[in-house]
Design a protein around this nucleic acid. Structure first.
Lengths: 347, 347
DNA sequence: TTGAAAGCGCTAACAA
DNA sequence: TTGTTAGCGCTTTCAA
């Protein structure tokens, strides 16, 4: 027996097309056509129906529409990037590109758990998402689920794609070029590279671009120093590079912003000035880190929001039946210049 | 005229209940009952239907079910926290609590834009979400949309609620108590508080708890130093606290981890040892920051994942028709002990 | 024990 | 110009 002291809120029943039709004194079909700009009828009737719909606050039931149209105006975003470092900017771009088309996004974090991943995929499929975008925290690892042969189109963005799938990634080599060329342009001559673990594909892509640019500019190439993605490694690397060496670097290109932060701190601690003695560039443009270093860090931005926008729009065209060429498309990075590289050095 | 060189992938038509029924040689109604454990029939029939469903890979169309049940097993998460610092752990908790109940989450970032917010809310409502959870980046600001009198239940989590709504927030005062009491327990005597801008409600809640605990322990209370939420402010505060002062603090409780990071760095730069000379505690337990300080930072965790879980479950019970008492429920924080406070000091 | 029929809210042929 | 009818995929009386 329910107690009466706690009022159970009662939610108003939504207004249906039937209600509108009745109120306007027409059939449901006519009402539907009036509201969808279909069919032929007097402007007067159409307007009257519209007006009653408006006054009743009618909003069509998407579920009913979707059932009929076989299209739910819903997409799923699958990720294993718990902290959202990469998936949130991406999400933001996707959402951005799709809101005004009426498409909403299911966000599902699958961690590294295939069972969890399967649950999410099943739930999404059952809800008849129009398509799925897969993303993750690194470009060279698969999500823990098989997304091939689904009943809906799939796009990979910033994660390892299946063969023959449509995929978008950032152009890591291009991003590295931006950084190293920036150093060259500023007149730096001894440019070194401190990066993450060799197990990451991006580490090699960036390192190769680093070598290429230096060679193109006739500058000496030092083997990149590989370590972890941490500040601590940035510190250690500085020790390796500067302890009792005669030809010290005047520029450090770092594999991510955390390493760069460690490098900047370590340089300051040994009395070296950034940017005057040594210039530093990071990667990822993680604002919270890049803006807190002293001085603020120049960094390569992977432009993940644009990547997301691109992925979203492409998914939509796939949903619309347009074929997209399979393969991996690389999107350009941006160099965000702050104060860690200084102005051009003279002669 | 479509060109043939680019094969347009064709997606298989989903298996419907009708297909299952036909294959099993029964009516759709029977098939439905068999799969839903409803009605009465021979175990043999039921099993046969189940088996054919399984073999055909049948999955019920959620849209159709939702239309009928008037329940979509979908909720919306509204946020203005672009970077997801707070909304992602929350999301994670919500999702966690709801996946195995088959509920999926629409994530919508509304920034500070009322128009965008309205679009998202409308889209969610049209898609017949069962309920909405509102969250944000601070506890004392409203989202830029009015969520009262919606057709679905709304829960506020970590954002300013409407009056009479159901809301969950972290217990900031309690969290501050944890920190300051920890210092007391370790024998620190001159504990100061460096926090964010006075415009934030949490700043006052935490400051008051700070004062209370010190008073309870008979320790001297210094007025909290208020500034910005940045590392730079942490540096400045240290200058203010330590420059030419005679009775220097032996413990600093910081309003967030970034301030704490600034404090730790500034202390080290002036030759003070953390934790031996000065203990430091942060707030937020943002791992990326807290684990990178030297030494790693002890910090108050708002336990947002638990908050999300709670919010998700409560929303679900609201959806189920159970009344929940309106009001703001505060959930306890956790102290995550790392190495910035040291061990108990002797007498 | 099973099935026929109605209906969730909407759209789209087709008739009138 | 408008309305009738059928049907999207499913669940649920109710009758057989």
């Amino acid at each position: 027996m329910p107690s009466d002291d706690q009022p159970v809120p009662v939610f108003p029943k939504p207004v249906t097309l039937r209600d509108v039709a009745a109120q306007a004194g027409v059939s449901v079909a006519t009402a539907s056509k009036a509201l969808n700009d279909q069919g032929r009828m007097t402007a007067e009737t159409r307007e009257r129906i519209r007006e009653t719909a408006r006054s009743l606050g009618f909003r069509p039931n998407s579920l009913a529409q979707s059932l009929l149209r076989r299209r739910s105006f819903t997409v799923g975003l699958l990720t294993n990037d718990t902290y959202g470092r990469f998936s949130l900017p991406l999400m933001s771009g996707i959402s951005d590109a799709l809101v005004d088309k009426g498409v909403s996004v299911f966000l599902c974090n699958v961690e590294e758990d295939p069972r969890l991943g399967q649950m999410h995929v099943d739930a999404m499929l059952d809800k008849r998402v129009d398509g799925i975008i897969a993303t993750g925290k690194r470009i060279d690892r698969h999500l823990p689920i098989d997304l091939s042969n689904l009943r809906v189109p799939v796009i990979y963005a910033f994660t390892q794609p299946d063969p023959d799938a449509v995929a978008f990634v950032s152009d890591d080599a291009g991003g590295a070029r931006l950084a190293v060329e920036h150093f060259c342009r500023l007149g730096r001559r001894r440019i070194v590279h401190v990066s993450g673990p060799a197990s990451f594909a991006v580490v090699h892509a960036r390192a190769q671009a680093y070598r290429d640019v230096l060679a193109e500019n006739g500058l000496p190439v030092t083997e990149p120093l590989l370590g972890s993605w941490s500040e601590a490694w940035g510190h250690q690397a500085v020790a390796q590079l500067f302890d009792g060496k005669s030809d010290r670097p005047d520029a450090v290109f770092c594999g991510n912003d955390q390493i760069a932060r460690g490098v900047i701190d370590a340089l300051r601690e040994r009395g070296l000035d950034v940017p005057n003695d040594v210039g530093v560039i990071g990667f990822d443009n993680w604002e919270i880190v890049a803006e807190a270093t002293r001085p603020p860090l120049t960094s390569v931005d992977m432009n993940l929001t644009a990547l997301g926008r691109e992925a979203g729009l492409t998914l939509l065209s796939l949903v619309g039946g347009t074929a997209a060429a399979p393969g991996i498309r690389k999107l350009p990075c941006l160099l965000v210049v702050r104060h860690s590289c200084g102005r051009p050095m003279d002669g």
